[in-house]
């Protein structure tokens, strides 16, 4: 366990209660870049919009409206977790994942670029690409989002594989801790992962109205997206830098009421 005392700028007023107490996510718009979302699931309180990346007439990837549905269930699981934390948040499903028949990199870039231009406050990315060819374009999109008050929340990879965009410092990257509390999350003083959130034995939505118990960084990420939505709901207009700072100050291992130590689990 790494312990690192934080006593540079004590801000005891930034507690979880100050950060998101009483908030429900209303007024905040989240895009879920994933396999789609089953809009009729009991754990999904209705989608603002549902779009997918399609191949345009000249072969280029473009975004088009579609029926709310999920080809695999992964996006439904993520959207359900965001709603469980921030029930009034407006969720748009951006389907960028397919059945593996096409490379996902181009669709990912098109979907991400669209969501940034559409002005979403938060983009949940429980996915990554390991293709170096997409690294530069993804990096530029991540920077564009950062400068447009659009926070990207991305899953860290839990394998010895170099992937993106979670490695970029402009995104909020998330890995898993194994505690059951959905509100507990830890600041990580050892980069590149920013935060550890609940990602083990999480009950998640499964298409067709069912639920399953699943583990993975994919499910830790929507917890931080949900908490971020609450913070933005209570403190509108924060930049990604300010949001990340508040997440840091209110983290379970940083906040003053817990002694202010960075105890990384």
């Amino acid at each position: 366990m790494r312990t690192e005392k934080f006593d540079v700028a004590a801000m005891p007023q930034v507690s979880p209660d100050w950060a998101w107490g009483g908030a429900d996510g209303s007024g905040v718009r989240v895009a879920v870049l994933d396999s789609g979302v089953d809009g009729g699931h009991p754990l999904i309180p209705g989608l603002e919009r549902s779009v997918q990346v399609v191949t345009g007439p000249e072969g280029a990837a473009q975004v088009a409206d579609c029926e709310p549905g999920d080809v695999a269930g992964h996006g439904t699981a993520c959207a359900g977790l965001i709603s469980s934390i921030a029930p009034a948040v407006a969720i748009t499903s951006v389907r960028v994942l397919n059945d593996g028949r096409q490379g996902t990199g181009a669709a990912l870039l098109a979907g991400l670029g669209w969501a940034i231009d559409e002005g979403y406050d938060l983009i949940n990315m429980s996915l990554s690409t390991a293709k170096p060819a997409f690294c530069l374009a993804l990096h530029e999109l991540a920077d564009r989002a950062y400068f447009r008050r659009c926070a990207l929340v991305a899953s860290a990879h839990n394998m010895p594989v170099r992937s993106f965009p979670w490695l970029f410092s402009s995104v909020i990257s998330v890995a898993s801790h194994d505690e059951p509390d959905p509100w507990a999350y830890y600041y990580n003083a050892a980069p590149p992962v920013d935060f550890y959130a609940r990602g083990v034995k999480v009950r998640v939505a499964w298409p067709g109205g069912a639920q399953i118990l699943s583990s993975g960084n994919s499910f830790a990420t929507p917890h931080i997206t949900g908490i971020s939505a609450l913070i933005l709901s209570k403190h509108p207009g924060l930049t990604p830098f300010q949001l990340k700072t508040i997440l840091y100050l209110a983290a379970t291992n940083v906040r003053r009421d817990n002694g202010g130590h960075h105890d990384t689990p």
Binding site: V71, L127, K201, L213, G216, S218
Partner: peptide, 15 residues
């Protein structure tokens, strides 16, 4: 299918 699409390792405990 989840794993192919998301590129992430996953566990399901109550299949």
């Amino acid at each position: 299918g989840w794993v192919v699409m998301s590129g992430q390792s996953l566990i399901v405990d109550d299949v």
